[in-house]
Design a protein around this nucleic acid. Structure first.
Lengths: 121, 121
DNA sequence: GCAATACTTAAGTCGATGCTTAAGCAATAT
DNA sequence: ATATTGCTTAAGCATCGACTTAAGTATTGC
């Protein structure tokens, strides 16, 4: 029975933070179609190269992307394990909640709404 | 064939941003064990009530949490659909990448490393 | 009515983020 | 050898984010 690697809170922070930016998600997207150099990653993004490199650092810090430099070209690849970590975090909560629904019965189903006011101010 | 709801980029931004904070994840965690009031959510967190309310706003904006006010108590619940959206986003990229691995062959497996220097400066 | 409860709003602090431009610098190409 | 390419580093800047305290406002309990 191999015990699965349990991510510390900080890891999850970095992971979701990395995924919270559209440019970084675009970079991940691109990399799921195969490895790419920094300038290839930069081409579709409307920002300077240094900005892209900064995003790349965030992605590498999160473990989502790895890169290696050969000559003057840095080649980047996705790390599917990191994606799996994020996926698992979510899946655990979601299924737990869905199981809870059974245990709790229909907490909101009993037409509690009728006596309640809407939350949006 | 029901076409699944496709989240816009902004939605995904809000979702992952909401999940990128440990206090907010703790709140989601708590809510997967059942509904809770704002002060119940606040109790285990070492911060002021207004801070918790701000986190709650972020969670509601992301769609992860809903809340309703009855009398002077606001009751919060998780919204598993939002969790599913995030999960799906990740799963799509991960499986795409894993399929790519087949198409690309072992891009890095051919002992390219032997001639390469490490990326970390 | 009066106090306590459960938020709610407002304002301010301060460090982190997401850019930018300007200069490097090592690895090719000519 | 010199120029071009492909990053890399540094500095600066404006905005955002995660808090805080102080001062409300409705409910509810006594």
């Amino acid at each position: 029975m191999l015990k699965q690697y349990e991510p510390v809170e900080r890891d999850v922070d970095l992971l979701f933070h990395a995924l919270a930016d559209p440019s970084r998600r675009a970079m991940v997207d691109r990399l799921t179609r195969g490895p790419a150099s920094v300038s290839e990653l930069a081409r579709p993004l409307e920002m300077s190269l240094p900005a892209v490199v900064q995003h790349l650092h965030v992605l590498e810090a999160s473990g989502l992307v790895r890169s290696q430099k050969l000559g003057r070209v840095r080649t980047c690849t996705v790390e599917p394990d990191a994606l799996r970590t994020a996926e698992r975090w979510i899946a655990q909560r979601r299924t737990f909640w869905e199981q809870s629904l059974d245990r709790l019965g229909e907490y909101l189903a009993g037409n509690h709404e009728s006596a309640q006011q809407r939350s949006e101010q």
